[in-house]
């Protein structure tokens, strides 16, 4: 393994093993796109089928949705800064930006949980109608991904504290970075096709 190690370039790309892991993660993200596409397709087909429950137009509020969008956008940016600092070899800045990313992600999650509870109080739950089942499945799957991402970053930060910046920990941070940006990509489409269109149509 070490015989293949490059002497220059970003740490996470120096060993072939790590290059392959990152490549594999891109393939995983391709599969994730398809997973979310099936949920988006289900949502699109069931749009408007609210039966006797509250329609989304009465529940969606631009304020909270924009706050959630900016929280996740900013967390994606700070995550990018973390990887940038990692490539400059600054482990401390990597840790700090990652912690900020975590806080922003957790705040996003808090808003989403508040939002779901609020909808449930207004009579929109998983069981209310086909529309709300599709909505909670789509937004909930994204929220679950964010939750997993937060747990993953915490575990990686522990590894970073114990092992420092090595090709292996760099590769792991690079992969979580891709994952986190990907969650923002999915949220852009939820924001646009679920919330914005839900408030217009």
């Amino acid at each position: 393994m070490s015989s293949h190690e490059l002497k220059t370039g970003p740490l996470e790309y120096r060993r072939q093993e790590d290059q392959m892991t990152i490549l594999g993660f891109w393939i995983f993200l391709g599969a994730e796109i398809v997973l979310f596409a099936t949920l988006f397709a289900t949502y699109a087909v069931l749009f408007g089928r609210t039966a006797d429950s509250t329609p989304p137009m009465e529940l969606f509020e631009p304020g909270i949705v924009l706050i959630m969008t900016f929280l996740l956008l900013t967390s994606s940016f700070t995550c990018g800064l973390a990887i940038h600092e990692m490539r400059r070899g600054n482990a401390k800045a990597l840790r700090n930006w990652m912690i900020i990313t975590l806080i922003l992600g957790a705040t996003f999650l808090g808003f989403e949980i508040y939002e779901f509870i609020h909808y449930a109080h207004e009579g929109a739950t998983m069981q209310s109608s086909a529309y709300w089942s599709a909505f909670f499945t789509l937004a909930g799957t994204h929220g679950l991904h964010v939750t997993l991402g937060i747990g993953w970053v915490i575990l990686l930060l522990i590894q970073l504290a114990k092992r420092g910046l090595t090709p292996k920990t760099s590769r792991k941070f690079f992969v979580i970075g891709l994952y986190w940006h990907f969650l923002d990509v999915v949220w852009i489409f939820i924001f646009t096709s679920v919330y914005l269109i839900g408030m217009v149509v």
């Binding site: 490549l23 393939i27 993200l29 796109i33 398809v34 994606s76 940016f77 995550c79 990018g80 970075g177």
Partner: peptide
């Protein structure tokens, strides 16, 4: 996000066009 944050095309990765292809085909399937 893909090009400016995720560096979907970067020569250091030694992964060629594969990341970009995965994203493009994923988008087409979606």
């Amino acid at each position: 996000q893909l090009f400016m944050f995720m560096h979907v095309v970067e020569s250091d990765s030694h992964n060629g066009h594969v990341p970009w292809n995965m994203m493009f085909h994923g988008a087409v399937l979606a």
